[in-house]
């Protein structure tokens, strides 16, 4: 019944070491959320050992529903309570994967994640807010994230007066594509 569908978002390297780990303190939090870091890390290492190189997408692990994807040399996980909707959680993982992918210009690996940690952190924050799934639209969400402090803003403006018909058409096409995508979800 609760919106608190996510207990943790984890990004681990292939040795099971933390790249990013965020356990959410919510009414449905995993016991791990308040565990000492050593215990969390042992959970993470066992999880990585179990999932590395096995592209199963999903498993029940230590009393949690866990979905994951391996992206080059890192693994991205979402940890959820056992009774959560598997497809819903997996969809959220897909959204998260796509937002990270966009933020890093489709070159996701450990080195890039560490280089552009700000983008990855913002990506995670934009998809899950303290255990609640915040977004399921990776394209729109990516548009809202800055990649550095001095970049030009990339968000499309809806000002048609100066840019002419072509950009208006492109904009409409993009929106239509998004709408179609939503219907398919």
């Amino acid at each position: 019944m609760s919106l608190y569908a996510v207990q943790a978002v984890l990004i681990l390297d292939s040795a099971g070491e933390r790249v990013l780990s965020k356990y959410y303190q919510t009414p449905r939090a995993s016991a791990l959320a308040t565990s000492p870091v050593a215990e969390q890390r042992s959970f993470e290492q066992k999880l990585a050992a179990k999932t590395k190189g096995v592209n199963d997408d999903v498993l029940i692990f230590d009393g949690h529903l866990v979905v994951y994807k391996q992206l080059a040399d890192i693994l991205v996980y979402i940890v959820a309570p056992l009774d959560e909707n598997e497809v819903l959680i997996f969809q959220t993982l897909t959204t998260l994967r796509d937002v990270i992918d966009n933020a890093l210009n489709h070159r996701v690996d450990k080195s890039n994640v560490l280089d552009r940690y700000d983008c990855v952190a913002l990506a995670v924050d934009s998809v899950v807010d303290n255990g609640i799934i915040l977004s399921n639209d990776s394209a729109l969400t990516s548009e809202r994230l800055t990649r550095s402090a001095d970049e030009e803003l990339t968000m499309p403006t809806v000002d048609f007066s100066e840019t002419g018909f072509k950009s208006m058409f492109d904009f409409a096409k993009g929106r239509l594509a998004q709408a179609v995508r939503h219907q398919l979800v």
């Binding site: 990013l20 780990s21 870091v37 940690y117 700000d118 952190a121 402090a149």
Partner: peptide, 14 residues
């Protein structure tokens, strides 16, 4: 922003 990123990075490592 770079310093804040390092700070957030620390938090996300526990």
């Amino acid at each position: 922003r770079a310093l804040l990123t390092d700070l957030v990075h620390l938090f996300y490592l526990g």
